[in-house]
Design a protein around this nucleic acid. Structure first.
Lengths: 134, 134
DNA sequence: CCATACACTAACCTTTAGGTACGTACTTAC
DNA sequence: GTAAGTACGTACCTAAAGGTTAGTGTATGG
């Protein structure tokens, strides 16, 4: 068992190690980017929404209160590039595009949903803790 | 069972409902703010780091690769205000401050850690999915 | 015939997360 | 005597997230 110190920097060997396992505490680890997309403001909500099944663009937009078209498109592209979202476009007119989760996406989605659900369910306590600390 | 439509807006009754349960999909729900802090770039890492036990400011800074002092302080204040982090300051010189998780904080921390761990563990597959989709 | 829906893109603007650098008040180590 | 460590606050700046508006091409509904 080898512990990486973020301060000492990565040797040539530990770089390979990073790819093998990932270490979010290390500045250069690619997992930071993935985490950024997944935990982005709309990324969270898109993942949770898509756990319900395939959605069209407009469906997602209606379901997720407050998203702009631009941000929804952007977020979907991030998640698609990370291999979490599958985009299927039918060449008809008017345009018809379906978004769904890949198996990988379903797994992250579940963790994210767990987090979101916990916050929703414990909102009263959180709000109480906020106000009560004065 | 009542389903809230984000489009129709909240009635007086569903507003109270929001506070009782929380609904991330609704634009005005306070859970959005909490989620923002918890899933912020450094919020995630702070929560995971503090699951290991009490840390001093500088300890956290050394442990979390790449945080600036300003952002670490800011993030800790967000999480403290949300009732997730407990700050204990000893009036000695040089300053001595200890940060730890509240019971509430430990619970969110675990969900967040689950997510971070999953990403770390599945990094190879994610990276493969990214590159392989061309 | 005009509005709307669809799934976006492009251009432009605002906000804010985040970074850098400096100061502080005192102490220990060199 | 000087440098470093401690836990930040403040001021200033950049980059990026995010919002708003307009436009695309076609087809359906009124």
């Amino acid at each position: 068992m080898e512990v990486l110190s973020p301060q000492t920097g990565a040797s040539a060997e530990s770089l390979a190690e990073l790819l093998r396992r990932g270490n979010v505490f290390s500045e250069k680890c690619p997992s930071r980017e993935v985490l950024k997309h997944v935990t982005s403001r709309w990324g969270v909500l898109v993942l949770v929404a898509l756990l319900d099944g395939t959605h069209r663009f407009s469906d997602l937009r209606r379901k997720i209160g407050g998203v702009s078209e631009k941000m929804l498109a952007q977020t979907l592209q991030w998640l698609e590039a990370d291999g979490f979202v599958l985009r299927v476009s039918y060449p008809v007119v008017p345009p018809h595009v379906e978004y769904s989760l890949t198996p990988l996406g379903r797994q992250v989605g579940q963790r994210v949903e767990g987090l979101a659900d916990w916050i929703e369910g414990n909102l009263p306590q959180i709000l109480a803790a906020q106000g009560g600390q004065g």
